[in-house]
Design a protein around this nucleic acid. Structure first.
Length: 236
DNA sequence: TATGCGACACTAATAATCGC
DNA sequence: GCGATTATTAGTGTCGCATA
């Protein structure tokens, strides 16, 4: 039974006209109005940034923002029509709810869920779960797929490599978890994106051999909200 | 040609300031 | 001293310009 972990505010539907300068997306709303929305995903959005596709945006009443609209979702048709989450700020919020509601039995018992805890060399872990043996959880958002296989990363990521090295190093004193947030519901498994960043894939495999735990978490995305579907198999 | 760095918009956390 | 408000900083990934 899918578990609702996030409910979107009322969204407006439209079609993507263009995405440019990393942060901007021109969108024609169903009302006929053309708006410029903030694109919160600064990555290449490989395979999901398709002009003309249906999208949803939210509207902020924050007077300090230059762009009132935020691009939240896009529909892709690689497999069956599927909504893909664009807002990279949401995965961490959703994972926080996931951890606080104890939706991942594989993590076992833990106490407090701490956010943005300093560790390693000037890094911060997304979540630290307290207990006799603390659990460090790093969250990575992914929308890139090959068929029904979710992949991460979709570009060379030196930051991601650094995170893997530091997580592997911390295994001496704690459990370390890579939690891949599969931001679409049409995938059945997860694998490292070796074609985009072979070094990352190598580091991930080395980390797993050393005890790093990897949980690709699958979510069903819809204009209503985000539901947790479960942990997808890992293909190495 | 290769490398380094700032800019871009926004969020969230932290620090500093102010008034009571 | 406390709470509320404001300011600052880090982080996110890529582009484009300046420099070596």
């Amino acid at each position: 039974m899918p578990q609702r972990l996030y409910t979107y505010p009322p969204l407006l539907r439209g079609r993507l006209l263009q995405r440019y300068k990393r942060f901007f997306a021109d969108i024609e709303l169903d009302s006929g109005e053309t708006i410029t929305a903030h694109c919160p995903n600064t990555g290449p959005m490989t395979g999901v940034c398709q002009m003309g596709n249906l999208v949803y945006v939210s509207k902020s009443d924050n007077p300090k923002r230059k762009l009132a609209y935020t691009w939240e979702l896009i529909e892709v048709t690689d497999n069956e029509p599927t909504w893909v989450g664009v807002n990279t700020g949401l995965p961490n919020r959703v994972v926080q709810a996931l951890l606080e509601q104890r939706c991942l039995p594989v993590l076992g018992d833990y106490g407090e869920v701490q956010r943005e805890v300093p560790y390693g060399e000037n890094s911060r872990i997304d979540f630290r779960l307290t207990g006799d043996r603390p659990i460090y959880v790093e969250v990575k958002n992914t929308t890139w797929t090959a068929g029904r296989l979710a992949l991460f990363p979709d570009t060379v990521t030196t930051r991601g490599q650094k995170h893997l090295r530091e997580l592997t190093a911390i295994l001496l004193e704690a459990r370390a978890v890579m939690l891949y947030f599969i931001n679409r519901g049409d995938c059945t498994a997860f694998a490292p994106g070796d074609s985009a960043d072979p070094t990352y894939g190598q580091l991930l495999r080395t980390g797993i051999a050393a005890g790093l735990e990897v949980y690709p978490c699958q979510f069903q995305i819809s204009p209503e909200g985000i539901d947790f579907l479960g942990v997808a198999p890992l293909q190495l």
